[in-house]
Amino acid sequence: MTAGQFIFYTMAFIMVAFSVFTIFSRNILRSAFYLFCVLVTTSFLYFMLGYEFMAGVQLILYVGGIVVLIVFSILLTSHIGHKFPWPSKRKLMAGVTVSLAGFLLAVKVLCCYPFPVVHEKVKLPGMKEIGRQLLDLDTRHSGYALPFEIIGILLLAAMVGAIMIAKKEK
């Protein structure tokens, strides 16, 4: 086993363990911390794949933005020491059965399908290349300028809406 494989399987183990803890932890703040660990490990996975920009976005937006937002809302709405009761047996059975069945089906399909993996070495894309391909308008692949703008407007609308919903009424 090489170093890369060792790192990958360690990360995979951490991700699996912490995602299970996220779901089953009875303390909500601890659950948010486990989610944080899963997201940070995902950004390490992006680093291993060679997409540094993606890893940075994951760290800044998911870990720095969304998890902090979730922790804030937990502090505003929940008691820290409060422990949830266990979910009812019926619900637990239903959830575990559905997700286990889906997971086994997905694994079966993934193991049967021959993915046409490209093995040659490719130069990793830099920041400039990513920006050029994302907003490219004139060459053969037409770029993603319109979805980019739409995402910008969506984010603006979501932020204005969030402020309007959450502000105190007079």
């Binding site: 779901i23 619900k91 239903a94 959830g95 575990v96 559905v98 889906g102």
Partner: peptide, 9 residues
């Protein structure tokens, strides 16, 4: 599927 399980329970 962990996320789906959490969404249900």
């Amino acid at each position: 599927f962990c996320g789906i399980c959490g969404f249900i329970i």
